[in-house]
C-alpha cells in the first residue's frame, strides 16, 4: 500500500514540474509580466488543487508538510540542465541563498504566529 502513495506523490511531482516549465516561460515571453501573473494563476491554482487539496502528494495530518515546491524546484533545475545546457553545479549559489531565506522565514513565522490574533484565537477555541 505504501509504495502506491509514493507512486502517486512522484506522479504529482512530475506533472506539476512539467506543467510549470512548459507553460510559464512561454506565457511570459508572449505577454510579459502579466503573462507571468496569469501563469501563476492557471498553473499553480490547478496544481495546488490537484496536489494538495485532492492529495496526490502524500501529506498525512500532523506530519511535516511536503510541498509541491520540491518538485517544481527539481524540475526547474533539471529542465535548465537538459534544455538550456546549463551546468548543474552553477545552480548551487542561488539554491543555497534560497534555502537560507526559506529557513529564516520558517523560523520567523514560528515567532510571528505566537502573536498573531487570528492564530491565537483559533488555538483558544479548539
Amino acid at each position: 500500500m505504501n509504495w502506491k502513495r509514493h507512486f502517486s506523490t512522484a506522479i504529482g511531482g512530475a506533472i506539476s514540474g512539467a506543467a510549470c516549465f512548459a507553460v510559464w516561460p512561454e506565457l511570459w515571453k508572449s505577454y510579459g509580466i502579466m503573462g507571468g501573473f496569469m501563469a501563476a494563476t492557471i498553473i499553480i491554482s490547478i496544481m495546488w488543487y490537484f496536489n494538495h487539496w485532492l492529495g496526490v502528494v502524500e501529506n498525512p495530518n500532523g506530519k511535516i508538510w511536503v510541498d509541491q515546491g520540491f518538485a517544481i524546484s527539481a524540475a526547474g533545475i533539471v529542465w535548465g540542465v537538459v534544455r538550456l545546457d546549463a551546468s548543474f553545479l552553477q545552480a548551487i549559489p542561488t539554491f543555497v541563498c534560497c534555502a537560507i531565506g526559506g529557513v529564516l522565514a520558517a523560523a520567523a513565522a514560528v515567532v510571528v504566529k505566537q502573536v498573531l490574533p487570528r492564530y491565537n484565537a483559533g488555538a483558544n477555541k479548539s
Binding site: A86, S87, A91, A99
Partner: peptide
C-alpha cells in the same frame, strides 16, 4: 547565479524548504 547561466532556480525551492522547516 553566474550572470543568468545557472539552471533555473525557482522560488518553489524556497517555499518548499521553508514549509518543511516550519512544520519541523
Amino acid at each position: 547565479a553566474y550572470r543568468g547561466a545557472c539552471p533555473w532556480v525557482d522560488m518553489g525551492t524556497t517555499i518548499a524548504i521553508g514549509l518543511w522547516c516550519h512544520s519541523l
